[in-house]
Simulated assay, not measured.
Amino acid sequence: MKKPGFIERHHLWTEIQKEASKKLEAVIKERDLLLIRTAWSDQHGIVRSKSLLPQTFFSALENAMQISTGTFLFDTGDAIVFNPFVPGGSLDMPLMTGALNLVAVPVPDTFKILPWAKRTGFILCNEYFQNGQVMPFSSRGILRQSLVELHQRGLEYIVGLEVEWYLAKLEDPMLAIANVGTSGKPGEPAKVSAVENSFQYLLESHNPEIHDLLRVLAENLVEMGLPLRSVQNEGGVGQFEFTIALCSPSAIAHQKTI
């Protein structure tokens, strides 16, 4: 009799997720995918990932995937700020002592095919210790626990995102070895130029300059299943705002690729 894998042994999937996982192999083979990006979020909300070949990914759907504890020892500049080789790993957590691997469990109902990356799938993961205990710094784990607590109080949490960002034309990526920096020390910023003229807010006459760029972004986000609501330019040069329709936090968390 086949020994249960890590996911089954620790009862980490819902029935819906179990059914979704059964369909993934057929989808991956039918679409001839070469790589599946398995992604998780560190305590800063930064998305980390490993790309798996299909057969390795199918194994991860049973036994999950070993990942380094390292991504939870860094600050936002990737400098190590916690020493894992002291008792408790500098975090007063015995399971963090010695920088043992964590276990990333793919979440089947978050699987997407990336429309902008050839033959590439994407799936989010939840992080656990080797004993099946939830990694307490997991952003998705904190969200799940918060939603449980809200439900216990008879409350519901609804999210509507307003994402503001800047778009610029790349002139020089500044990738010479002298410019790229090291861990904890960012490299030289890329040299860029503007994609539109002037400081104006919601200016219709700017649309001809930036319409094709925003259309490509909107098409890809919609194809990913993101409930995109509106697209507009803001006050700064190259400053834009995308708004996302109201939905549950879990639905937004499934779209971590943005």
Score class of each variant (00 low, 15 high):
residue 126 N to Q: 15
residue 184 G to N: 09
residue 131 N to C: 04
residue 151 H to Y: 03
residue 128 Y to C: 04
residue 151 H to F: 06
residue 136 P to Q: 01
residue 142 I to H: 07
residue 183 S to N: 12
residue 215 R to S: 12
residue 108 P to I: 02
residue 184 G to L: 07
residue 134 V to Q: 14
residue 165 W to Y: 14
residue 190 A to K: 05
residue 106 P to M: 00
residue 127 E to D: 13
residue 214 L to S: 03
residue 103 V to W: 06
residue 166 Y to S: 10
residue 130 Q to G: 08
residue 154 G to K: 02
residue 90 S to C: 10
residue 100 L to R: 03
residue 113 I to K: 03
residue 161 L to N: 11
residue 129 F to W: 09
residue 200 Q to V: 12
residue 151 H to M: 05
residue 165 W to A: 14
residue 117 A to N: 11
residue 212 D to Y: 06
residue 115 P to Y: 08
residue 211 H to L: 14
residue 102 L to T: 00
residue 133 Q to N: 14
residue 200 Q to C: 14
residue 179 N to K: 11
residue 186 P to R: 10
residue 91 L to D: 07
residue 156 E to L: 08
residue 118 K to M: 09
residue 101 N to Y: 02
residue 162 E to I: 09
residue 125 C to V: 00
residue 110 T to H: 00
residue 213 L to T: 09
residue 99 A to V: 02
residue 160 G to P: 01
residue 121 G to E: 03
residue 227 P to N: 01
residue 183 S to R: 12
residue 103 V to Q: 02
residue 227 P to V: 01
residue 188 E to L: 15
residue 116 W to K: 01
residue 136 P to W: 04
residue 144 R to F: 08
residue 119 R to N: 07
residue 194 A to G: 04
residue 115 P to Q: 08
residue 205 S to T: 09
residue 96 M to P: 02
residue 115 P to W: 01
residue 100 L to G: 07
residue 219 E to N: 13
residue 117 A to S: 15
residue 158 I to T: 07
residue 149 E to W: 06
residue 196 E to T: 15
residue 118 K to E: 13
residue 124 L to K: 01
residue 185 K to H: 07
